[in-house]
Design a binder for these strands. Structure first.
Length: 306
DNA sequence: AAGACGAAAGTGGTTGA
DNA sequence: TCAACAACTTTCGTCTT
């Protein structure tokens, strides 16, 4: 097991939680998200003898959708081939090469550009490579279905990334995508809905709890507060408070309450900012949470302690 | 003076006739 | 295709700490 990060840079704790699926390392003590993008250096297979090793080892460049042609491109000849051909075949050679280049310019160049943009945005957001891969796949499919026509390449890229994030339970808000790609929120939402519908990609509504780690870390809240808010969210889900509501609203309200309970008060404004919702939404969710989950005692308790 | 609260009007999207 | 609708936002005035 290889670990780059062994100690939390914030509080020095060694109590780190590795979450490979989300590509995050979270400090259990202070809640800081230490590293959001990490590489898994483990081999996922084991070799018991040299025979098995031969079969299981894979060599060569990985095939990846982040390469525009999955890394398996073909070029029709180069000059070095040219001198070996007679007159007739020279013509054929040029014809083929011309067509190859025309096709390249039409579709593949677009893909090349788009995937470069996709990589840029995804690294800006420090997304795990699994998400980047998925997004590239989605974009490629979208191009093949001609869904990019009439839309800007960038917005489709952003939409594909958003969809990939959702599928991998690594939610990023539309605001974050918007900031990274400089495409309007509405536009991303629109293309996101469009391409997922057209490609028949099913996406479950995201779980508010998935946002907690990042929001809490941005607000420098303790791990207790984090788990408290996850707990609150779970309770809220049992009482059917969560369906139909924006997950970020729920997450931020739960976080706000949890912070109050643990005496780590943050203003509604602060929470609202990192979660990308308004104070009003937090207030509404907050009120509902208090109504249904009688958390008031707990808040009063910590008040008296002071 | 800042933060919390709540009312009212507006926005963009979904749904169902 | 249109109208009703729910969730969320913006704005603004009032209350609380």
């Amino acid at each position: 097991m290889t670990g780059f990060v062994k100690k939390c840079p914030e509080c020095g704790s060694l109590n780190l939680l590795w979450n490979k699926e989300k590509g995050e390392i979270i400090c259990k003590d202070c809640g800081l998200v230490v590293e959001e993008k990490m590489v898994d250096f483990d081999q996922e297979w084991r070799e018991f003898d040299s025979d098995a090793a031969e079969r299981k080892r894979r060599t060569g460049a990985p095939m990846s959708y982040t390469q525009f042609d999955q890394g398996l491109g073909t070029d029709v000849g180069t000059k070095s081939d040219f001198y070996r051909l007679d007159g007739k075949n020279k013509n054929k050679f040029f014809r083929l090469r011309k067509w190859q280049q025309r096709i390249s310019t039409a579709i593949e160049r677009n893909l090349k550009l788009a995937l470069a943009e996709l990589k840029r945005v995804s690294s800006y957001l420090r997304l795990p490579s699994s998400v980047e891969e998925e997004a590239s796949r989605i974009y490629t499919l979208a191009v093949q279905k001609g869904l990019v026509r009439g839309r800007s390449m960038e917005s489709v890229v952003a939409g594909a990334l958003y969809a990939a994030c959702r599928r991998h339970d690594v939610p990023r808000t539309l605001d974050e995508l918007s900031e990274a790609s400089s495409i309007e929120k509405k536009e991303i939402g629109r293309t996101y809905r469009f391409i997922t519908r057209e490609l028949g990609i099913k996406i479950l509504p995201s779980n508010p709890a998935d946002y907690i780690a990042r929001f809490a870390s941005a607000l420098k809240l303790s791990a207790e507060t984090q788990s408290k808010s996850v707990e609150i969210i779970e309770k809220a889900q049992h009482v059917e408070l969560t369906s139909g509501r924006g997950p970020t609203g729920i997450a931020s309200a739960a976080l706000y309450v949890a912070a109050l309970i643990n005496g780590e008060k943050r203003t509604q404004r602060e929470v609202a900012d990192v979660a990308g919702v308004t104070e009003v939404t937090i207030r509404n969710r907050y009120k509902e949470l208090l109504d249904k989950l009688d958390l008031e005692k707990e808040i009063k308790k910590t008040k008296k302690k002071k």
